[in-house]
Design a binder for these strands. Sequence first.
DNA 1: TAACTAGTTAGCTGAGTGGTTATATAGTTG
DNA 2: CAACTATATAACCACTCAGCTAACTAGTTA
Lengths: 112, 112
Amino acid sequence: MPAPTSLPDAALDALAERFRLLAEPTRLRLICRLSAGERCVGDLADDIGCTQANVSKHLSLLADAGVLRRRRAGLNCYYTVADASVFALCDAAWDSVRRHLDALAEAVRVPD
Amino acid sequence: MPAPTSLPDAALDALAERFRLLAEPTRLRLICRLSAGERCVGDLADDIGCTQANVSKHLSLLADAGVLRRRRAGLNCYYTVADASVFALCDAAWDSVRRHLDALAEAVRVPD
DNA sequence: TAACTAGTTAGCTGAGTGGTTATATAGTTG
DNA sequence: CAACTATATAACCACTCAGCTAACTAGTTA
């Protein structure tokens, strides 16, 4: 049986916090954009159609959590994915979503 | 580059919703308890020290999302993990947490 | 039938947070 | 120096939601 079984409450809190970090469409969108390489805040804001302040806040959150890395260069601030394993995590979650959708479809399927 | 890069916005919303489902300590605690086998609502409530109403709500959420399966037996209602891949997802997230903690420790480490 | 029990659901409240605008902080350029 | 630009931060609003209590539903047992 995998790890979750034996995790103490404090660990579960940390785990939940990790999931919560990724439980925001805007943050996922940012991570997606950054999968192609580093980008600065303003470009990302234009890209996803949010205010610069909002994007800055999300990027800071992700950086503080160790998912992104920040690099200053003059006036600009470039962000990059620091922990590429976040992609694997997203893939796994996406598989879970698809499995659920498949199960729903199967339940509705007309037997021939 | 993994899937997230190419996911459309609607998919990212679904992905975020999936993460949000797991972004609650109480729900994670329930999943942990259920990793040992099926349990009924009242037992789980006693176990984690929440009201039965609250536990019932969380269990329903998880069941609707396809993570748990519900089985009625008389007055009792037993829940089981329906999609065991949730454990792999938790493991992956837990690794991510540990990587971050290691990085923090490394940043503070005194070079000898 | 009535009394009891397990679960669900409804309604409420307070805490947390995503998004906004406005302001502050750096860094650049004239 | 002043003017300008890119980020970050502060203050605020609106919304979501975990948890509670109370009421309701359904199954059991007498």
